[in-house]
Design a binder for these strands. Structure first.
Lengths: 290, 290
DNA sequence: CTTTGTGAAGACCTTCACAGCC
DNA sequence: GGCTGTGAAGGTCTTCACAAAG
């Protein structure tokens, strides 16, 4: 085997320092030396769990975790339909991945399948929920009740269950105290206090970019461990805080890249696999949307 | 990050108005209507997610493309501040990546740096825009004008420039014809026709999951080449169509996973809320200043 | 000197293919 | 026979470290 050095899953880098005159309103941000950045990200190794003692669970690849969430959704739908068992072939097809990958992903949970038969739906659901930490609720705070924040707060309790929105924040005086989706909006200044009081574990940032870092700092001060950032800004956080970002502009630009690639590269003869017509599929299903 | 200076705390523009009648359904989205979602349809795995395909040509890694978009944003902010050149060290710190990765990413564009000096901001901006295909506009259609779709349609022309929203669709009769963000809402049935007429190149799906595949098929029939999917559903598309998904539930579950992992092997203790879900947790604690 | 650009090494993920159990 | 679980092969992306250029 190979001797591995730093284990630790690559999280988002967290060594860099903000530069420029980040106005950041309020920002009492520390100086943060930019130069001499220590290339070797050497956080206190600790946390990584792995090391000490034997662990029953070896770290699951980040990519696999994301897929587990998808499998869970598909399995729940199947269970509701009455299915009791599934094969890796069926489940993988429904989840849009190939079966080998699915089996590998499930193997991180342990061995819960039956050879020659498949997996028991309920068992699998239970195991994935346990692994993803869904056996307990994670209270969510949404910061920035603008268009997006408003939508998030009204998301009917938030996607799937288990993520109750328990706090809302904004800086607009006209919004403070106004209930949105049943929760009154509090002021940004109260983030630390309210997050501690309500035991918030996940913070969602839906503010303009200029306010994002400041809001992030307050969430961290409030003991929030994970942050979902919708603001187009790079956040600086302590090593123990997990950040995931959803950047609409980036997504669109990636799509733009692919459009350009397809259109621009039309040099050769064969590009799009023919099939210009998609064959309008008349499958009109009842859409139950808003 | 730059951004305007001065001004304490960015104000969150919150568009009050809106609302009106229950601003949009909301419909807690019945937990996956048992509709014949037919999870069993197993179209030979194939295609779908993942680059897969034979990227024979030296194409830029997908991961690098996503970062280029971030660099572009950072560079634009720097340019506004008056910066004319940047070193890989500065830019990488501001973008939250390490400098080697940044240089490697930029090398996909060609050689636009000057050794011993750095990169010229304007030149870099131009090259990234060219590579991402941002030199032309990509018209966007938003389908599903619920909470989220409404927010997207009002996103002020959409993140950054270059992605004008040119069409909106929904199935609700009360919404058809009503202008949102300046564009009147059309019916789902008109997707193919309208997309062709207005030369839409990117479709954004913000409908409930049950309607997603049907909407997707219509977008494809309308010649849309790229789709950004916010619905928690796996989409089946022809090879020449690019799909990216943004799944809120998945993001939260990934964060949940990390929270659980940090909480350690045990520590259950907390749990607290023994209440059955029901939701509305009392917790009407103060903080309601108004 | 400083900083870019890049081969090479390595970490990470995916895919293959088959042994092993039903 | 059918299907899972997994070592090993194969790719992709990241990091290292250094030669080349200014």
């Amino acid at each position: 085997m190979v001797a591995q050095r730093g284990r630790r899953n690559g999280r988002n880098g967290s060594a860099p320092a903000a530069k420029s005159a980040s106005d950041v309103d309020n920002a009492p941000t520390a100086p943060l030396p930019v130069t001499g950045g220590d290339p070797t990200t050497a956080p206190t190794g600790a946390a990584s769990a792995g090391g000490a003692g034997s662990n029953t669970t070896r770290s699951i690849p980040e990519a696999a975790v994301a897929r587990l969430a998808v499998y869970l959704r598909v399995l729940s739908a199947m269970a509701e339909q009455g299915a009791t068992t599934v094969s890796s072939e069926e489940l993988s097809a429904a989840a849009g991945v190939n079966s080998a990958k699915l089996r590998k992903d499930l193997s991180y949970l342990g061995s819960y399948g039956t050879r020659g038969v498949g997996y028991e739906v309920e068992v699998l659901i239970g195991q994935i929920e346990r692994t993803l930490g869904l056996t307990r609720k994670h209270k969510v705070a949404v910061v920035g009740i603008g268009n997006l924040g408003h939508a998030l707060a009204n998301y009917g309790g938030f996607p799937g269950r288990g993520f109750p929105v328990a706090a809302l924040f904004d800086i607009d005086p006209d919004l403070i105290g106004v209930p949105v989706g049943g929760i009154p909006v509090s002021h940004l200044d109260d983030i630390p206090k309210v997050c501690v009081e309500r035991d918030i574990s996940i913070g969602v940032i839906a503010t303009p970019p200029a306010a994002a870092q400041s809001v992030c700092d307050r969430l961290v001060a409030g003991g929030v461990q994970s942050i979902l950032n919708f603001a187009p800004a790079v956040l600086q956080v302590p090593d123990h805080v997990e950040v995931r970002k959803v950047d609409l502009a980036v997504e669109l630009q990636i799509l733009s890249f692919h459009v350009a690639r397809k259109a621009g590269g039309e040099v050769e003869g064969r590009e799009a696999d023919g099939n210009a017509e998609g064959g309008a599929d008349g499958d009109a299903k009842g859409a139950v949307m808003s």
